[in-house]
Design a binder for these strands. Structure first.
Length: 154
DNA sequence: GCCAACGTTGGC
DNA sequence: GCCAACGTTGGC
């Protein structure tokens, strides 16, 4: 079992939106970055843990957790001309982009902000700190545990 | 295969 | 809205 951090802009799709989704589950679509795609396709498996991260908002940080409930399958939006995720270069028989399904698990008692993460020595090796822009990131078990500890009520 | 130009992400 | 960091594109 592996751990991940998934980024989302709350104005686009927040943890709350996930909670309100049918069966508290959604497809994680619209990944259009090869590094993130490769992780989704090859490494993200059913049962893996996901840190749900809010970017580009007032309170940037980890806000909750989710669980992977379906591993990689072709992202349907790449073939949808109406979608902003449409990709004319993707071939039906050999789709370029994949998505997974994730299910809401928990909301953290305290948001673990990017500021806190950057200030914490135990989290200094996180991809989030070293390579800010990647939207799907691996997280170690130690990092996962530490973040959940920071999120507990004080 | 190099690299300049351009586009996107995301914190602030 | 700015801008740094990084990714992608396309001419050569």
């Amino acid at each position: 079992m592996n751990y991940w951090l998934f980024k989302s802009e709350p104005s686009d799709f927040s943890l709350d939106d996930l909670k309100k989704s049918p069966n508290k589950t959604t497809l994680w679509e619209g990944i259009r970055n090869y590094q993130a795609r490769n992780l989704l396709r090859d490494k993200v498996k059913v049962g893996d843990g996901v840190l749900f991260y809010h970017s580009q908002c007032k309170q940037v940080g980890v806000v909750g957790t989710a669980e992977v409930v379906k591993s990689a399958y072709p992202d349907p939006f790449q073939f949808d001309k109406e979608s902003k995720y449409f990709d004319a270069k993707s071939d039906q028989s050999n789709p370029r982009w994949v998505c997974v399904d994730i299910k809401y698990e928990s909301e953290l008692a305290n948001i673990v902000t990017l500021k806190e993460i950057k200030a914490d020595k135990k989290l200094s090796e996180m991809v989030l700190v070293k390579q800010g822009r990647l939207s799907i990131q691996p997280v170690t078990k130690a990092e996962w545990n530490h973040i959940l500890k920071l999120a507990k009520p004080k």
